[in-house]
Design a binder for these strands. Structure first.
Lengths: 338, 338
DNA sequence: TTCCGATGTGGAAGCGTTTCCATGCAGGAT
DNA sequence: ATCCTGCATGGAAACGCTTCCACATCGGAA
């Protein structure tokens, strides 16, 4: 029925509609001023010929690419995938395509900022949930496009995120409220992120201090964001002369690792040890893990909407947003024994 | 130091290098025949001017876009994210960009195939892990580009996948080997996928039959791929007069839902009921879930490599691949009690 | 009536490449 | 010495659009 073989150009449409190419272009792009009947005629012909504009020609002529770069580490981890979906949702209707740049591995990341493969290919960049280093920021700016951060604390750009300190406090305050005093922390850091002091850790320290509890360095174990590290960290905590009665993990995945180790040691969660995470990963519900929920999807969506505003040149849209988090009590926390 | 303000064109480079634009283009694209010293000169000038080709102009002139569409449902679910990362890995060095098209929701999916937003924007399409309907296939082919399937049984295109029947058999055979006879199945289906009979279910039926066990319809519960459905399905199984001694779930997420329900009922996994899943989701290791591992990342990578071959016109690369799966025994399965 | 602004339109000038074709030239075969 | 081959090169012609500019037309204001 249709011939995808011969490609139909704007000139063809214009000719058959009996108008000039300029008019045809205006009629199709919708915005410009064209007489209603002329527009109708052009659209009718375009439809009949199965006309599809050539995005490359349009980009070349207009200088706009209609694309957005999505720079994201670790697509395979729930949070990032969820944010990415949120971004896609927020971009709907804006007629923008997403160019995907996974930069999980150190080398990939270095290469991305080195080569800047998105250069000249996008109108904007969304950086998902990672801290952009100073040197990287400078490279990024060579692209000369809008940049927003989704789910990260890249303070240099407009962002949508949660308050990690508050999230951490919600977790810690819950444990403290339950009566725990000997609380361990499984701190997560990205291998190549030179965070000085993650806010989620500050929350630990300050929550303890406010409750008159000394920070015991033995009770703080650092690892990456993976569950395996949580499991190992927990082993270390269990080997202490006096293990903690509760564990605050920086993420649900880390928390689940801890739970496994506790169970393998023949102990019970939460009777012997309480465990709390952060994220509200879908599996947290399935594993009955108490956690602090953060709106992953929404962070993506809001960031995308912000970007659209920026591209349109709306005034005042570049105001960063911090979304609320929420304690979700499940079965992995309880008052300490005794 | 650099001026991202003024855009440098090929003509500028050519002029400063003292060559024609044709020669400059050939020198930069690398492949064509250019005298070594000429090429060196051009490259040097290009580098000095921070020249970056305009992908749009190049696409327009050459007819190649240098982009690949990645059509994927549910980015936020581990398997899809992992396959996507694999695809990205497989594409490295090929200088191809990935255009992301999430089509998780029914409406999104319909809209994608209706509007075909990737039309004229890509040289190829990778469809991740979902069955392309006949009508969708016809739409897709309007694009007139190569298509491959990663991690799905879309038989119409070259694919890389696992054998779902075999994976199911590995799970079932393990349970049977342990001595279970009353085995339930938590069957997962995509809400809008009119699979007749999923191979993972066939495996259940045939494994039982081969072992002389009648299929008890009560023991088969259907849901979607989410953990919640696994939890609910398990409730139903527990309400039977004679609950199963083992549960075969179509995915790890479903299996974990089942485990939660079993535990909440005060029963023990695996002492009272064994549970096995499929996937080897990272959290399966953390929750000690026995499962059948499938190489998600590799499916993506291989599909991407296949695509590169197709685009290069290599002969014989369009041969589909089926990767092996592997039983991973952990702590959620044991012989039946008694 | 004349003039003016608003509105709709056609067409040309880019946009920045790739690629084809013609040309120049060196060197080996005759 | 002459011819031919083949490589390296310059330049022009697409590629298919957007957008600017100029022009025509039409009412209404003066």
């Amino acid at each position: 029925m249709s011939q995808p073989t011969t490609k139909v150009t704007l000139a063809d449409v214009a000719r058959l509609a009996g108008v000039g190419v300029g008019t045809a272009s205006r009629a199709l792009s919708g915005s410009a001023r064209v007489a209603p009947e002329t527009r109708a005629k052009v659209l009718e012909v375009a439809d009949r010929l199965h006309y599809v504009v050539s995005p490359d020609a349009a980009s070349l002529a207009s200088g706009r690419t209609g694309r957005v770069a999505l720079v994201v580490p670790h697509l395979s981890r729930w949070f990032f995938g969820e944010v990415a979906e949120g971004i896609h949702a927020g971009l709907r209707g804006a007629d923008l395509d997403l160019l995907l740049y996974p930069v999980g591995a150190v080398q990939e990341r270095a290469e991305f900022f080195e080569r800047l493969p998105a250069r000249r290919k996008v109108d904007a960049v969304i950086v998902v949930a990672f801290q952009v280093l100073e040197a990287e920021r400078r490279r990024l700016e060579l692209m000369g496009v809008h940049i927003v951060a989704a789910g990260g604390q890249s303070a240099a750009y407009p962002y949508v995120r949660i308050d990690d300190y508050v999230a951490g406090r919600q977790a810690m305050d819950h444990l403290l409220f339950l009566g725990h005093r000997r609380i361990a922390m499984l701190e997560a850091r990205d291998p190549d992120q030179p965070d000085l002091d993650p806010p989620r850790s500050d929350a630990y320290v300050e929550a303890l201090r406010e409750n008159g509890i000394e920070v015991d360095p033995e009770l703080v174990v650092v690892g990456d964001w993976g569950g395996e590290q949580g499991a190992q960290g927990m082993s270390r905590l269990l080997s202490l002369r006096t293990p903690p009665t509760a564990v605050y993990a920086h993420s649900d995945e880390v928390a689940l690792g801890a739970v496994r180790t506790i169970r393998r040691a023949g102990l019970d969660v939460p009777r012997d040890i309480s465990v709390i995470g952060i994220d509200d990963h879908p599996l947290a519900a399935l594993t009955d893990l108490t956690t602090v929920r953060q709106p992953a999807h929404e962070q993506g969506r809001r960031a995308a909407e912000m970007l659209i505003g920026l591209l349109r040149g709306d005034p005042g849209v570049d105001e960063s947003v911090t979304l609320p988090t929420e304690l979700v009590v499940r079965g992995s926390t309880a008052p300490p024994r005794g």
